[in-house]
């Protein structure tokens, strides 16, 4: 209402502030109608679920479905080997997939990264972890997997003397195409 000349309005048929007020009220009513229409629209519940899921991220049964949402020119997978470098069938050994093996290892690396960040006072991301830390995450993974295997018939029959967790990095290089580089993260004697 600041700046309105009330004196001048006394002569007019309709006062200026009333007109302004009516206009404002009309605009507010229109806005409310639009908001109400939006809230009643068929898309509203879906939008609420979309926003909610993006906020809560991975909290089952909600998820932000982040798989393949980042397109890096390199990636990695993890395999298990025996002492002679022969690959082991992950599902037969521990009843989980190679994909799950990777997720479990990465979760352990993330946990270590948080720990190191707290110790050092600055944020440390997963790739910056030392080889020792990567090996420690591998040891932790084996600590989780081996008792699982003790309850699986295939593993009990075919248990190797040595088990290794191996990371294989796949990189896209323009001149050489796709190249794979394996690294042994941890090796443990079982017998």
């Amino acid at each position: 209402m600041k700046g309105i000349n009330y004196e001048a309005n006394l002569d007019g048929v309709e006062s200026q502030p009333m007109e302004e007020q009516n206009k404002l009220m009309s605009k507010a009513r229109t806005l409310w109608r639009v908001v109400k229409r939006g809230l009643q629209h068929a898309l509203f519940p879906m939008l609420v679920l979309v926003v909610f899921s993006l906020i809560v991220k991975e909290n089952y049964p909600f998820s932000n479905f982040p798989m393949y949402s980042k397109m890096s020119p390199s990636t990695e997978y993890y395999i298990l080997e025996d002492g002679e470098g022969q690959a082991l069938p992950v599902k037969n050994c521990f009843g989980l997939s190679a994909s799950a093996l990777k997720k479990m290892y990465v979760k352990r690396l993330d946990k270590l990264a948080v720990k190191r960040s707290e110790e050092k006072g600055y944020q440390m991301r997963r790739p910056k972890l030392s080889l020792e830390d990567q090996g420690a995450a591998g040891e932790d993974l084996l600590d989780y997997l081996l008792p699982r295997g003790d309850k699986i018939v295939w593993w009990k029959k075919n248990r190797p003397d040595v088990i290794r967790v191996v990371r294989v990095v796949i990189e896209r290089e323009d001149d050489r195409g796709l190249i794979e580089t394996p690294t042994v993260l941890v090796e443990r004697r079982l017998n």
């Binding site: 393949y68 397109m71 890096s72 020119p73 390199s74 990636t75 990695e76 997978y77 395999i79 298990l80 690959a87 069938p89 992950v90 599902k91 037969n92 997939s97 190679a98 994909s99 990777k102 294989v168 796949i170 990189e171 896209r172 796709l178 794979e180």
Partner: peptide
């Protein structure tokens, strides 16, 4: 770059069994 992810899932599927 999804090509590298394809190769990864291909390998992972192989190493399952």
């Amino acid at each position: 770059n999804l090509a590298v992810q394809m190769m990864k899932t291909n390998a992972q599927n192989y190493y399952n069994w």
